[in-house]
Design a protein around this nucleic acid. Structure first.
Lengths: 213, 213
DNA sequence: TCAAAAGTGTTAATAGTACACCCATGA
DNA sequence: TCATGGGTGTACTATTAACACTTTTGA
């Protein structure tokens, strides 16, 4: 074990890109950094890895602290390790992205931590390298949605195909032909129609779908 | 800056999965761990991140130390952060994979560090979570080769299409139809025929190709 | 003369893209 | 009655997959 002793140790942080889908737009949860350096600047949700937890657990703990949520879709994105990335001290940051349903998280916690949703297409300047992290996460999400049913994590349990299409469009940043989209979705076994009709979003009413589990 | 002080620090290591292509097989460079814990066990090439270098630079330094090579294709794979992953002390490991030409690296360094190439399809048991790292890197490589000209990093400057096909087959773990393969390759603008003929590998002789840069 | 690797086209199936109109309803 | 979003099918194009024989040459 003494062989390790000659090496330096580092602060290791976790930063989370928490995606949500609201008003037809893909959004990211951010807040004001509560301490120096960069106090008051906009920042991703983050925290430091502790000794008694794995890095993955740390990410889960942080997500729960800010949203109240457990058992969330979360994946490791990448590690950011530039020497000067944090102007205060050397911190190596391991970045995760998570997908949550904006209608189902703890808004009290949101108030406490002053979090807010910002449109991923209109990201303000964030502190440090956080904008770069968001860009990378967004590209990853675009790759994922092509063959993973990740929409289930961003949408309410029941949803119309129009809403699902809007989600795809906002993640991919493109517009999609309605008929082609509906055909493609109907071929996916993990999305199924319920008998229910949504009368909120249109006069005629739209079939509600859900993800199989 | 004092806000960070209450948090723990960690050893951070870099482990490299160095891929090479030899005798028609995809191989990984490993060696015997030179210190405890696990001294003498088989291990990926690795080392500790130092204070004066970014994590990326650290990976480059380690690669150079073991192979003598600079300017190598190397990408970050993932970070492994389980609490007990290293039985000695808590070490968070950031994993990279690299592609090198087995005919063009420093074999003196290889002797010094006792490195050896092992077939990725016949991996021995490595220490800690290193086998898991290799598996993940291999999957990543399979994804990459589908639309990146990464073969240029694993092959000599001039190569036959048969050799290129064998490379693809060993990375993807499948067999590929020769005519379909050659048509697909001929449509890629980054691979071009030279006028040269290789007379080593066959009686008839095969056209030598190269990657454009 | 024969073993060994090089080289070469066609057809079928599948996936993706483009495109426009009628329907049901509540205000 | 009309504005709003819901719902539907077909033709074209591009990509992928399956498949077998001839050529050249050194031993």
């Amino acid at each position: 074990m003494t062989a390790y002793k000659s090496n330096p140790k580092f602060y290791v942080s976790v930063d989370c890109i928490i995606f949500g889908f609201e008003d037809g737009h893909l959004k990211v949860l951010i807040h004001q950094r509560p301490y120096e350096p960069g106090k008051g600047e906009l920042s991703l949700i983050g925290g430091f890895v502790q000794t008694n937890e794995s890095v993955d657990s740390s990410a889960q703990r942080i997500l729960k602290k800010f949203t109240g949520l457990d058992n969330v879709y979360m994946r490791q994105l990448a590690t950011f390790g530039e020497v000067e990335r944090d102007p205060g001290e050397r911190v190596i940051s391991i970045v995760y992205y998570a997908l949550i349903d904006v209608n189902n998280y703890n808004t009290q916690l949101s108030d406490i931590h002053n979090t807010q949703w910002v449109d991923v297409d209109e990201m303000p300047t964030l502190c440090f390298d956080h904008n770069e992290m968001v860009q990378k996460a967004r590209r990853m999400l675009g790759e994922k949605i092509k063959d993973n049913p990740i929409g289930s994590n961003l949408l309410p349990q029941y949803f119309t195909l129009s809403l699902l299409q809007t989600l795809y469009e906002s993640i991919l940043g493109t517009s999609i032909d309605k008929r082609n989209f509906r055909r493609a979705i109907s071929e996916k076994e993990y999305i199924q129609a319920t008998g229910m009709i949504d009368k909120e979003s249109s006069r005629r009413g739209a079939t509600l779908y859900r993800f199989k589990k």
